[in-house]
Design a binder for these strands. Structure first.
Lengths: 203, 203
DNA sequence: ATTTGTGAACAGTTTCACAGCG
DNA sequence: CGCTGTGAAACTGTTCACAAAT
């Protein structure tokens, strides 16, 4: 089984999201093209790489397809622990955000350099001063970090996160983070997103 | 001058971000490789497509390179007006976010279906009930929308935004939005980002 | 001397068109 | 018989290697 190309995987992530709210029992590549905008040929090539043969003449069985996607995307094993680094307005907005309810991702800790904030804020998981970052991440086996700090703190913290073995960083800052290739970065800052749109990109 | 490939443009957006905080006067393709992780060959090919010849033997002149990037990315003309749709916790966090200060993007309006919220919240730009969406967007010539509503409202609002001519949507919801190809979408939800990282993607 | 810019080779991705399957 | 799955072709993007530039 050959490795799945990167552009395929990005679409498969979105396909999993799409199926999460799809109510019919089956779905055709043509229908996916109408919803998501990728050509039916691309959809069939993407799905065929999952090596499930869960559909012909009636389209794919949604349940089987979604299971195969979850398996490919590592969403069917145990929970993935995450932490929020930076508890300013953006970090606080994510504190009690329900988006991760019923997903394999769980926020297990929050960090901020202001002890004032870590003591005053209330959340369902413990908040710690940033000095504890390395200890807690290793102890709790945290795999992903959500970076919502001020721009000047972003690169130093990214470096610390990478060196304690974090697999991926969701980067809410507009900075380009410099980390070893073992740590993946997903850039989701408002400014970066707007610049991307302004360049005529996005689907 | 041929069209610039999509993967190149995505890197050029990040290169612009990188240069925004770069303090030396010149930068080499080799240095960019060290920081951003793209190969020096890819960097040279990307930059050569800008048709500025702003460097040899000492690397690129940072000022010239950044100006060319801004021009390519449409960041040097007039201001781009944006609106926030959905003033829940995430929308409120973006209300007085300083990230767009000193950029060509300006938030010109906020919308929420709860009149309670649009009347109580304070911000530097006017807040309106969602019923006013189409009117205000046309009146104010708003080009981009930041979508921070509850998941069940996401698709209907995306369709309304697309049909009143919005060029791009920054999608903070985990839904796959179905819009005509004239409206671009940039997906920045926490869940989508975490799934992408879990699939082993990102830089 | 060092680094860009670029043809040419290579690698990856998408599209086409249709055989094969339920 | 409509729809998937897939070779083969077409296209897009990356790497190599070196001539040109300063």
């Amino acid at each position: 089984m050959k490795a799945i190309p990167e552009p395929s995987k990005r679409r498969l992530v979105l396909l999993e999201r799409l199926l999460a709210t799809y109510t019919e029992k089956t779905i055709t590549s043509q229908r996916i093209e109408e919803i998501a905008g990728w050509s039916a040929a691309v959809v069939r090539r993407d799905v065929s790489q999952l090596d499930i043969h869960c559909g012909a003449s009636n389209g794919y069985k949604v349940a089987d397809l979604r299971n195969a996607l979850k398996s490919l995307l590592n969403l069917d094993g145990e929970q993935h622990k995450c932490c929020i680094v930076g508890l300013g307005r953006m970090g606080q907005a994510l504190l009690d955000n329900t988006e991760l309810y019923d997903t394999p991702f769980k926020i297990a800790a929050g960090f901020d350099s202001s002890v004032n904030r870590t003591e005053i804020l209330r959340s369902t998981f413990p908040l710690h001063p940033t000095t504890m970052l390395e200890n807690i991440i290793k102890e709790e086996k945290i795999q992903y970090a959500i970076l919502t700090v001020e721009t000047q703190e972003a690169q130093p913290l990214a470096a610390r996160l990478a060196s304690c073995g974090i697999l991926g960083i969701v980067n809410y800052t507009p900075c380009v983070l410099s980390v070893p290739p073992t740590t993946k970065v997903e850039n989701v800052s408002l400014l970066t997103a707007l610049e991307t749109l302004s360049a005529g990109l996005g689907d």
